[in-house]
Amino acid sequence: MKRKEFILHLIGEIAHFILDSDPMRMVISLHQEEDGLHLAIFDDTERTDEELEKIRTALNNAQRPELAGYYGSMAGYDMFGTARLNLVGWQIKRGDVSRTDSGTNIDLWFGGDRFDPGRFSIPDEG
């Protein structure tokens, strides 16, 4: 239950962010594993290099346990105002952002304190 809620709120916040730019298409794909999970988000919004860098910075900010444990609880609950990717960034291991043919792809990797990145894998889409 705890894990399910955690995932739902993070998906909520990232969906909030995507929907802020009013896309015509949004795809969220979840790959859950024992050691962690991978969330792949695709939309059809074309973003500038600067915008992509802002997303990358927000998702890869420093570990802030004091903020993650308290203010991070607002992620996915708060659908008012602009979305805040730093709420997600404090709680993930890594976030990648790339441009696709038709829009943007955001990859997020999650894991608990005992998360072993070496054992982390996602299904081969090819």
Partner: peptide
């Protein structure tokens, strides 16, 4: 299945500035 090794989150020079 494709394995991903995840790099450190923060660059070294960033750590120096923050310190």
């Amino acid at each position: 299945m494709v394995s991903f090794r995840l790099p450190q989150k923060r660059p070294v020079e960033g750590v120096f500035l923050i310190k």
